[in-house]
């Protein structure tokens, strides 16, 4: 295939296909992942080609899905499970937090948990309740889990390969409103490390750090700011646990200003962690406090309010202005 232009959903699909082809221990599990190919078609065609033993339509029970994935991993399999929507991961939260995250440590390293939990997350698709949430911080708080989120098709493809190869449990947050965005995927490229941030756009005046669905918004904000003569650097963090603080630090020590952007509520969000760490690391370089743009401390609103709730271009630019005003 070499270089191809693929939507994010299709890039992840191709990546899962490669994993199923190359490692007989890889399994796909979840609700409606078989014939239907998942509600977003991320597993489209996989059951047809790899059979019901490897691409498994599970009963409607998330705790069951993750709990049995743990058992399969104990038995040497590498399950890649799908949670249909962000808001439906919570029946599995107990299995993820009390079992999946801690199994390796409890067994003094003798057991590995190569489980990938794919979760389409975030808003912007006009959905009903529980279909638009960004619960990454609820998982990042738990030691033993790694959390990543691709923002491009190439990352969707490569980060999924790397997540499946990892011996640690990984929550793979897929920005659902970007599923249909196309990007180039080179399946012969040599990918960088899974948990390393990327400077998506270089700039000198202020750094915007984002991941998943908000990277695109930040790039648009940078373009709008450029028209006003401001040079904005955009970082795609790609990993929320671990976080590549070195890359953020390098950027901030150049621009001296940092705005962290995510859809998830700001209160206790990943922006808080980044702000605290960067303030410690780069205190004397900062010209302004680290600012955060994100969701409010309120339930995700009904669809006709999500444009107001979600941090858009203007909210990001407003924060850029506020940072530069210090």
């Amino acid at each position: 295939m070499a270089v191809q232009k693929l939507p994010l959903a299709k890039a992840i699909n191709e990546s899962l296909r490669v994993a199923l082809e190359t490692d007989p221990k890889v399994l796909i599990m979840g609700e409606d992942v078989g014939k239907l190919g998942g509600v977003f078609r991320v597993t489209d065609g996989l059951q047809k080609d790899f059979g019901e033993d490897r691409v498994i339509d599970t009963p409607l029970a998330e705790s069951g899905i993750v709990g049995t994935a743990i058992g399969l991993a104990l038995r040497g399999y590498r399950p890649v499970v799908e949670i249909q929507f962000d808001g439906f991961v919570f029946p599995a939260y107990d299995q993820i937090v009390t079992q999946l995250a801690k199994m390796h440590a409890r067994a003094l390293g003798k057991i590995k948990m190569p489980v990938v939990i794919r979760i389409p997350y975030g808003g912007g698709i006009g959905a009903v309740e529980h279909h638009s949430e960004s619960p990454e911080a609820l998982f990042a708080h738990v030691a033993g889990l790694k959390i990543v989120s691709p923002s491009t098709s190439a990352d969707g493809y490569w980060m999924m390969q790397q997540a499946i190869q990892s011996d640690d449990p990984i929550i793979f947050f897929e920005p659902k409103r970007r599923y249909w965005d196309k990007g180039e995927v080179d399946n012969e490229a040599i990918p960088g490390p899974l948990h390393k941030a990327r400077v998506t756009q270089a700039g000198t005046d202020v750094t915007l750090a984002a991941y998943g669905p908000m990277v695109k918004v930040c790039l648009e904000a940078a373009a709008a700011a450029a028209e006003e003569g401001r040079s904005v650097e955009v970082l795609d963090l790609r990993s929320m646990s671990p976080i590549d603080f070195d890359t953020i630090q390098t950027s901030v020590e150049k621009t001296r200003r940092l705005v962290v952007v995510h859809e998830a509520p700001v209160f206790y969000g990943s922006g808080a962690e980044i702000a605290a760490r960067i303030t410690e690391r780069s205190f004397y370089h900062l010209e302004a406090p680290v600012l955060r743009v994100g969701g409010f401390h309120a339930p995700y609103p009904p669809a006709r309010l999500e444009e107001e709730y979600l941090p858009g271009l203007d909210r990001v630019l407003d924060a850029v202005d506020r940072s530069l005003a210090y």
Partner: peptide, 25 residues
Amino acid sequence: GMFRGVNHGGWDPKTNNFHLYTIVI
């Protein structure tokens, strides 16, 4: 209302002893 996206359930459950719709299965 909830299907239009203007609320998460537009009725008072106590008026008709009919609770809100629940989406989490």
